[in-house]
């Protein structure tokens, strides 16, 4: 009892301190909680509601049930081409960016003369982003008499009508995306530099060649980073807007009318906020499905240290 009497005040004090720490933590979290509620959760809930309404930006939303969703799946001549354009961009662009970023990071991981200069040079395009200046550059690069066709011509190829041909226009934007691999490359580079040299030394002693080391040591070790990069790049491609809006305007024949661009077109020029809201949920679903596939598949190809 006496022991208990002696222990009780101490444990009470500890509990009080714990409570105080907890309360302080919750108190400090209040701004974040308010922020996420006001700027994320509330907009998402309202957006979901608006997706079931007809909503002129300057009018009142009127409930129309699932009409927006029915219209997009059954009657909208632009929706499915837009989905196809988006998926093509995501499914080609994401692996391309990953491959380009990894390859350059791999090369820049060697101790080369002036390697820092190269690292900076390769990173710069990703700083530029999809702005107007880059768009103008791209339009000129891929003009029928621009540098790209000139270089192709030097190899005897016929000039390509990049922007006016629906078969080629998406690839100009995919190439633009692949060109801006700098951030992804930097993360790969950091991961590569974290691979312990002792593993390579051991592999050397065992007689493993460089290619074998790449596939047996380097790639398995950096798979968590590959997963992280894949998801980031995937999201970025799903959300692409600037390049399509500034360079191709969604054409020709909807070949580059990505969902994000279409959402904008529905929301503003077309004054259909409700329909645009519905489209965002489809976009979110698309992102969710592909991200889930990546996560589920990662059990089979991502190797964690533990």
């Amino acid at each position: 009892m006496g022991t208990g009497d002696n222990a009780a005040p101490g444990s009470d004090k500890k509990a009080a301190i714990k409570r105080k720490i907890k309360m302080t933590a919750y108190f400090l979290l209040i701004p974040w909680f308010i922020g996420i509620t006001v700027f994320r959760i509330y907009p998402m809930i309202m957006n979901l509601y608006y997706s079931f309404t007809e909503f002129h930006p300057l009018g009142e939303p009127s409930w129309i049930g699932v009409s927006n969703y029915l219209e997009m799946f059954t009657a909208d001549p632009v929706f499915w081409p837009s989905v196809v354009a988006t998926l093509r961009y995501v499914l080609i662009g994401t692996p391309l960016v990953m491959a380009a970023a990894f390859f350059i990071a791999f090369v820049l991981n060697f101790k080369l003369k002036g390697v820092n200069l190269f690292r900076t040079a390769y990173y710069i395009p990703s700083i530029l982003g999809g702005n107007v200046a880059v768009s103008i550059l791209w339009v000129r690069m891929f003009h029928p008499i621009g540098p790209v066709n000139t270089v192709l011509g030097a190899f005897g190829a016929e000039p390509i009508n990049w922007f006016a041909n629906p078969s080629f226009a998406p690839f100009t934007l995919i190439i633009l995306s692949a060109w801006q691999f700098g951030s992804v490359m930097l993360i790969f580079l950091a991961a590569l530099q974290n691979v312990s040299p002792t593993l390579y030394e051991a592999a050397d002693i065992d007689g493993a060649r460089k290619w074998r080391q790449l596939f047996a040591i380097t790639l398995p070790i950096i798979t968590p980073v590959m997963l992280f990069n894949s998801i980031n790049v995937l999201l970025r491609h799903f959300q692409e807007f600037n390049a399509a809006a500034l360079i191709t305007g969604g054409g020709p024949l909807n070949a580059t009318r990505f969902l994000n661009l279409y959402i904008y077109e529905m929301a503003f020029p077309s004054l259909r906020l409700g329909y645009a809201a519905a489209l965002t949920w489809v976009l979110l679903a698309g992102i969710g499905v592909l991200t889930a596939i990546l996560f589920v598949s990662s059990r089979h190809w991502v190797h964690y240290n533990d």
Partner: peptide, 9 residues
């Protein structure tokens, strides 16, 4: 909530 925004058509 619209994921895009920025440039103009």
């Amino acid at each position: 909530f619209l994921a895009a925004c920025g440039a103009a058509a």
